[in-house]
Each structure stands twice: as structure tokens, then as C-alpha cells.
Amino acid sequence: MKKTLTSIIFGALLLAQAGCARGFDINTPTSFAELDGSGDYEYRATSAEGVVIGVRTAENDPKGNLEFWKAAMGYELARRGYSKQGESEVKSASGTSGVQLRYSTKHQGRPHVFWATLFVTESKIVVVEAGGDVEHFEKVQAQVSSAINGIDV
């Protein structure tokens, strides 16, 4: 019994360590599957129809607040032809304030939705990206929003 309890505690510690190593915690929506080998992304999951949620983190360098990184992101995406559809304030599960920038763009000739949600702390920036063909994105939009709002950064 004592051995079993030790195994459980050890396993829980390993999981916690893994979560801390990623720097955030996100619940994969039920209709999404987590992808391996995601390149720049520390996390990526896809729906069966190709709507993808991805999370990347970066050092807050140069050190800027949420407004700074929102402006930088907005400028960069606008420069590449993304059309801004709106923005809204969001909060992570741990209470960190963030901002969600919503865009439309074309990818391979098709209209696509792209959301970039930013959370900024003293030391890091967490960017949650979500996007897909507009036709498929609308079907899973609620799940995507739920996953973003439930992120722990």
C-alpha cells in the first residue's frame, strides 16, 4: 500500500514537472488531438477538419507590457495583410490578463480565421494561436474559446 502511494505521488510530481517545463497548461478540446513535433510551438492540437490551436512562449525581451506586445503583434500581422476583425480582453485560468486579436486572412486561396491571444508576464509571453478555414472554424469556435480561457500561464 505504501509502495502504491509512493508511485502515485512520484507520478503526480512528474506530471507537474512536465507542465512547469512547458510554462503553461492547456486543456485540449475534446474534438481535438494533440500533435507531436510541432516545431516552434510548444503545444499544438488539431480538429479533424484542420482547425489548429497552437501555443508558443517567448522571453519577454525586449521587456514590454501587454500593450507593447499587442501593438507589435498587430503591426506585424497587418503588415502581412491580415485583416483585423476585432479584439477583446481575456483572462487566463490563473487570472493573467491577456488580449485576443481576431483576424481574417486568406490561406491557399481560402478565407481563414486567425486568432492570436497574448498573455504577458514579467518574464515571458505566451501566445495562443488558433486558426483554420472559416467554414470549419465556426463549428469549433466555442471549444477553441474555452481552451484559451482555460489556459494556465
Binding site: 516552434d40 510551438y41 497552437g54 507589435a72 506585424e76 500581422l77 503588415r79 486572412t105 501566445v127 488558433a130
Partner: peptide
């Protein structure tokens, strides 16, 4: 000036990388 912010990752944020 269309000069980009000298932060590598921000230039990779977008639908292309996300859906790759």
C-alpha cells in the same frame, strides 16, 4: 518604414506556421 521588430518569433506567428 516596414521594418520589423527584431524578434524572430513574432514574424512566425500566423496561419501558415500554425497549419503547417
Amino acid at each position: 518604414s516596414p521594418r520589423k521588430l527584431q524578434v524572430d518569433w513574432i514574424g512566425r506567428v500566423g496561419i501558415g506556421d500554425l497549419l503547417s
